[in-house]
Design a protein around this nucleic acid. Structure first.
Lengths: 208, 208
DNA sequence: TAGATTGTTAATCGATTAACAATC
DNA sequence: TAGATTGTTAATCGATTAACAATC
């Protein structure tokens, strides 16, 4: 089986739980315990680990320290990973200043907008004009970009990001972007998720 | 095949594309065309439609007006759907004022926080103290809640929401919530998504 | 009618779960 | 050793894609 996105996401959550357990002084864990804590099956935990070549000890479970080290290695958590944000509106600025990133060694190194009133190259997170995207991406070596612009300019902004050398985009505009070679996209649509949740709730109501 | 979350999400995106086409004066469409525009297969489009009992015309494709009407019916888009937001920090306030919601007939009817400085019951979106959650949920009839609080209080806040009668929660705290009966959860973890995207980019780099 | 498109059934693909041999 | 847990293979489950009969 190939490593897929969902397995990567689970690995990320395993890691975060393990870090919390480590803080509590726990040093070893069984796949069973880990599974229970995260609401998955123990088969899945072992399968995921095997996918990433993470080894435990028969009978003795897993050493949390070793697990965390291996995961840091897999995710390259030793080097800070740089991210730029395109679109400094409500969502963009909220993410630029989100304090959950540094724990994961993710660094928002710059944001971009076309509104002159928002440009602030000397802020905690510098905000530049979109025209400077290519230069800044070149200088910082950022590989990943967050796209948080209005729907109607999303495709064009994505093109500019791909052009600037960004290799992966996390898109928050509520539109499916047509892919550009060399720059992969993952999209998140809040209204779509809410809609989907509402549908699920409605359906459940009909049954129960 | 049962209706699943991914199919619901696709239906939502079909609808949005169809609305845009309608504005351009297009009145009919084939599954082929629709599929191409959204980067899916035409089999999938027809399968999705069949899942929701959406009918077209052999040889003549689908009438966009009929499709949109049927989808509005499925999603109950005729009545405004009310949402509350728990946690009025950066993410919470960004979402409270996000202007992509009203297009989908989603109404953020109230937000909640425990910081007295944030309470503002007469704002465009009223912000109340968390203590008032149950009352306000009762009064407004909101069924869905967005959870945007710090990780360490996420599980407890979720419990309060379930308690207040919220039937579905969209969680943005980077933690897996243990489920409470009667209140389903969908989670989104930005740092997890970024991490996953970085992993994918790294992997691609190794191969190419 | 001939050609083209829908709607559905069957085939394929991929991910999760179960089972169990290896082993500490 | 006996018991328990990992690691992996096989079985199951679910979703996507392909194929094609129905039909306009």
């Amino acid at each position: 089986m190939k490593v897929n996105k969902k397995a990567v996401q689970r690995l990320f959550h395993y890691k975060n739980l393990l870090l919390r357990l480590q803080e509590d002084g726990v040093t070893r864990i069984y796949s069973d315990t880990l599974a229970e804590r995260l609401g998955v099956t123990s088969s899945q935990v072992r399968k995921d680990f095997s996918l990433f070549n993470i080894k435990g000890n028969k009978k003795a479970g897993y050493v949390i320290g070793e697990l965390v080290d291996r995961m840091d290695e897999i995710f390259r958590n030793d080097v800070p990973r740089r991210v730029v944000i395109v679109g400094y509106g409500r969502i963009g600025s909220a993410l630029a200043n989100y304090n959950g990133f540094h724990k994961q060694n993710i660094e928002v190194c710059a944001a971009f907008d076309i509104d002159p009133a928002k440009i602030a190259p000397h802020g905690a997170v510098p905000v530049y004009h979109l025209n400077d995207l290519k230069t800044v991406v070149g200088d910082t070596g950022a590989q990943i970009g967050i796209l948080a612009v209005p729907e109607r300019v999303a495709q064009e902004s994505y093109r500019l990001m791909a052009d600037a050398g960004i290799a992966g985009v996390l898109n928050f505009a509520p539109i499916i972007l047509s892919p550009i070679a060399g720059c992969m996209v993952t999209s998140y649509c809040v209204e779509g998720e809410l809609n989907s949740l509402m549908f699920a709730v409605d359906q459940q109501g009909e049954q129960g």
